[in-house]
């Protein structure tokens, strides 16, 4: 049987989706209110001359994904194993869930651009994202989201497996997937030198996407390596 379609993997995915629905909905509701407030505030005080969504719409929700990743092991792994799910099934189910939640996050991020574009573009002719860039931007945002989630998952797994002190020492290792993906994919920040070296254009974007994918794969492999034989310890009472 294909491991990804194993009934217990599907159960894990369904449970994770159900368990995060309310929290994710609340998060986006609050975030939308805060963002709308920021946008209106910016517009009233400075006039509309920039995309607030570009400043805050992608990065801040990504931290939420990292927190989701941290709790996957700390909160959920012992419960699943205690109910007859193997570690491998938890990792597979968690990975499917990661793809689903990151796809949703990406869709909401792109939707944010769309709404902002519709609202402000008459007053902001040089809107930073054009319609033709949406597919590429979607892939970039998706890979970044996934890298942040895996960084969080790796961090939580390292703390769970090796304890607090070693976990703190290993934190730089845990953030490597997200930092690496930022470097590879963030066209306006750290990856500028990379784009410069590779030539700023389609090949550079392709190379960035491949590097971003490698960062995600490294994060996933590291989570697997840490959790594959992890003991399920007694929780402190």
């Amino acid at each position: 049987m294909n491991q990804l379609t194993h009934p217990r993997v599907r159960l894990v995915v369904r449970d994770l989706v159900a368990g995060h629905r309310l929290m994710a909905g609340l998060y986006w509701a609050i975030f939308a209110v805060v963002y709308a407030g920021l946008n209106i505030g910016f517009g009233l005080t400075h006039g509309v001359n920039t995309s607030v969504w570009q400043l805050s719409g992608g990065q801040v929700p990504r931290y939420f994904l990292s927190a989701v990743g941290i709790l996957l092991t700390m909160l959920r792994l012992p419960v699943y194993v205690a109910h007859g799910v193997t570690r491998r099934q938890v990792i597979l189910g968690g990975s499917v869930f990661a793809v689903l939640i990151c796809a949703l996050w990406t869709a909401l991020t792109l939707l944010g651009y769309g709404i902002e574009y519709a609202v402000v573009v008459p007053r902001l002719p040089l809107y930073p994202v054009s319609l033709g860039q949406v597919p590429g931007l979607g892939v970039v945002v998706f890979l970044l989201d996934l890298a942040y989630l895996y960084s969080g998952w790796l961090l939580g797994s390292l703390f769970y497996r090796f304890g607090v002190r070693a976990g703190i020492l290993l934190t730089p290792v845990a953030v490597l997937p997200s930092v690496g993906a930022e470097f590879a994919l963030n066209v306006d920040w750290n990856s500028q030198p990379l784009h410069f070296a590779l030539g700023n254009g389609a090949p550079a974007l392709l190379a960035s996407l491949l590097l971003g994918l490698v960062c995600v794969a490294v994060g996933a492999a590291a989570v697997y390596a840490v959790l594959r034989t992890v003991p399920i310890r007694l929780r402190s009472a």
Binding site: R8, A82, H83, G84, V85, T86
Partner: peptide, 19 residues
């Protein structure tokens, strides 16, 4: 981590394993 054995086993510990 055996998918055939794990569902057949229930280990109830002093500190409970649920959310």
């Amino acid at each position: 981590d055996n998918p055939r054995v794990a569902p057949q086993t229930c280990f109830v510990r002093e500190t409970l394993d649920f959310v």
